[in-house]
């Protein structure tokens, strides 16, 4: 594992890795070290190919430890996968199916057959970047973002699948909708998905365009 450690301000480090899988592995290892009392960090933020450590008391020491670190692959998670019910009724499903060169029903089947993991979160509270589709199914963002994407929309961009926790602008390809509540600050934990969580999408009912994705999954405050 090649690790590049970049200082960020006075008390943070950005650790750059060669791949998303390596970033996931380092993130798991850093959580383990923090839980064991070997690392004091206020924030450990995984992203596409990096892990940010913020609020470090001794960034210099942590940087030299990381440069010499031997990080095992992320251990398999013992907890069950979160199942997200989905209707494959998104307005971009046809376009995604065309990009994949398959009929819409087959696109839905491919997506529902994959096992996903939350690589990282960002964009909005509870929004996870899920990996798990083979690279040949990467899709571009839409050329023109939508000004309003309904809450509960299931969408694709690049190698990622995501679910919009609340209505917001967005440029991802909308393939379906869910009634799962991705974020509820009165719930513990508030976020349905956090980095490392395993996820499966479970089709419910027949595919159709009559879903009401905007009416559920809204955040408690707005």
């Amino acid at each position: 594992m090649s690790v590049r450690v970049l200082p960020v301000g006075d008390d943070a480090l950005l650790v750059e890795l060669a791949s998303g899988a390596e970033a996931e592995a380092l993130h798991a290892e850093l959580l383990r070290r923090r839980a064991a009392g070997l690392l004091s960090a206020r924030e450990i933020v995984p992203a596409a190919r990096t892990v940010l450590l913020d609020g470090l008391t001794d960034p210099g020491r942590v940087a030299s430890e990381l440069a010499a670190a031997d990080v095992p692959p992320a251990p398999p998670r013992a907890d069950a996968a979160v199942e997200i019910p989905i209707r494959y009724d998104g307005p971009d499903l046809a376009e995604v199916a065309a990009l994949w060169g398959v009929p819409e029903e087959e696109a839905a089947r491919i997506h529902a057959a994959a096992e996903f993991r939350v690589a990282f979160c960002g964009f909005a509270p509870g929004f996870g970047y899920l990996t798990g589709l083979p690279p040949r199914y990467d899709v571009p963002r839409r050329a023109t973002p939508r000004t309003a994407v309904p809450a509960g929309s299931v969408a694709l961009a690049g190698p990622y699948t995501g679910v919009y926790p609340r209505a917001s602008p967005g440029g991802w390809q909308l393939i379906g909708s869910t009634e799962a509540v991705l974020w509820d600050h009165t719930r513990v934990p508030a976020a349905l998905l956090s980095p490392g969580t395993r996820v499966r999408f479970v089709p419910v009912g027949p595919a159709g365009r009559a879903g009401s994705a905007g009416s559920t999954g809204r955040m408690g405050t707005s």
Partner: peptide, 10 residues
């Protein structure tokens, strides 16, 4: 640049 973590004051 692939998305990466941001700090206060960045």
């Amino acid at each position: 640049l692939a998305s990466e973590g941001m700090v206060l004051g960045a």
